[in-house]
Write a protein that binds this DNA or RNA. Structure first.
Lengths: 228, 228
DNA sequence: TGTCGGCATTAACCCACGTCAATTCATCGA
DNA sequence: TCGATGAATTGACGTGGGTTAATGCCGACA
């Protein structure tokens, strides 16, 4: 989570506005002159093929900022959508640049955040291109678990995913039907337990990490650093 | 391509060293304290699953720099390998930081480069997760063609890929056998013509763009900006 | 309390792509 | 000139995951 900066805080207090689940905050190719700050709720940054197939590139969680503006400085190269009811703040480029100029700490933490994001992207590309459905699902569960946990502290084995299996598929490159099949299988194997409304309980952290082909400790460091 | 900077040039003249095709310049998790500059040849940045499956995350072309150092500032989160005989220069972090501090132009162009890289990654993730083999192959051909072309000027419909079908598969998330099949099919359809040694001639640019589900003009802008 | 709409679940079926293996071909050192 | 090596190519075959569609469940709303 971002540390507290008086001027930053000031901006975040103004201009908050609530958006309903499903709201599209920015579309691909649309004008974009601001960085978004998520005060509450989850967003998804995604791209679509002409035939309508959607791929979620990144989830944006409360306390994070995101700017999908392309190199032209004008248009967004991603679509940003609210996965659940959310509260967001638009910080215009000028204000953001000013914040960065004034605050070396913020500058440094944003730099770290970018590097961490790039590492995460690489890890996801590896799974998208090369891993089985089971590995992909196991991985996303671990990743989400860790990212949710750091809002509290440490590693909570139980967490809530505020969106459906369709979106999980859009993120892992699978159909919602196969996401379902895979989650059932993990349930039957006793690795996880799914409750109502996409509540997830990781029953066997070790087995899940095995399936995801990931070293949990390393991943936690990587993702957690993101917040520094 | 990077513009000319006296001090930058100075560094690039020293410390050049040649590496043979297949050389692994950095391994995943290995110590990494420098940024690499490619004076000649192509590199690949990749990640691997425990079972050995490899995914190429990015190609690094002559004139580009790359730094795979993770947020810990110590280890590389990618493997860097020479796809063909290459000449590279290691620029240590301190020198690089100094260059950035002294040169606002370089700082700005690197910033642009990072944004462009992120847009490219998103585009690739979309294809990895959601597109057919044909679309992926068509897309990578167009992407490579444009990136090679900008070393000269404009869009050359004929170009050379200095590595094999296996690596094309490692980049697109396909098996080398299926890469081969797909290339043959594109040949038979008259969209491309493959010559010896992975020489590619795009015979029908429009049809290829159609298959790739991409707007060539937009993509060219995006990739070309990368070089600013 | 009923009805409606959206999501999860499951089964049946199919196909795009992976795997394995044989064949050809180009390169290269002895 | 002769293997020897490694990549491209092609065919046969198997399968993981997509598609379709039926069913059930829950929450919202009247």
């Amino acid at each position: 989570m971002l540390k507290t900066y008086s001027m930053f805080d000031d901006i975040l207090q103004r201009d908050q506005h609530a958006v309903a689940k499903g709201t599209i905050l920015k579309s691909e190719g649309e004008e974009s002159h601001s960085r978004m700050y998520v005060a509450g709720g989850w967003l998804a940054a995604s791209k679509s093929l002409e035939d309508g197939e959607q791929q979620i590139i990144e989830f944006i969680l409360p306390g994070e900022t995101y700017d999908p503006t392309a190199t032209d400085g004008k248009t967004s190269f991603l679509q940003i959508e609210a996965l659940c009811d959310a509260v967001i703040v638009s910080i215009d480029k000028t204000s953001w640049a000013q914040l960065l100029r004034q605050d070396p700490e913020l500058r440094k933490s944003e730099r770290q955040r970018e590097i961490a994001a790039q590492a995460r992207q690489s890890e996801r590309m590896l799974r998208l291109g090369r891993a089985s459905a089971e590995t992909r699902i196991a991985y996303v569960l671990i990743e989400l678990c860790i990212r949710v946990s750091r809002q509290g502290t440490g590693f909570d084995s139980e967490f809530h995913v505020p969106f459906g299996q369709q979106q999980l598929g859009d993120f892992t490159g699978l159909s919602s039907v196969h996401v379902c099949r895979t989650l059932r299988r993990l349930n039957r194997a006793g690795v996880i337990r799914t409750g109502d409304h996409m509540d997830i309980l990781i029953k066997d952290q070790h087995a899940l990490a095995e399936l995801a082909q990931v070293d949990i400790a390393a991943l936690r460091d990587e993702i957690t650093t993101d917040a520094a």
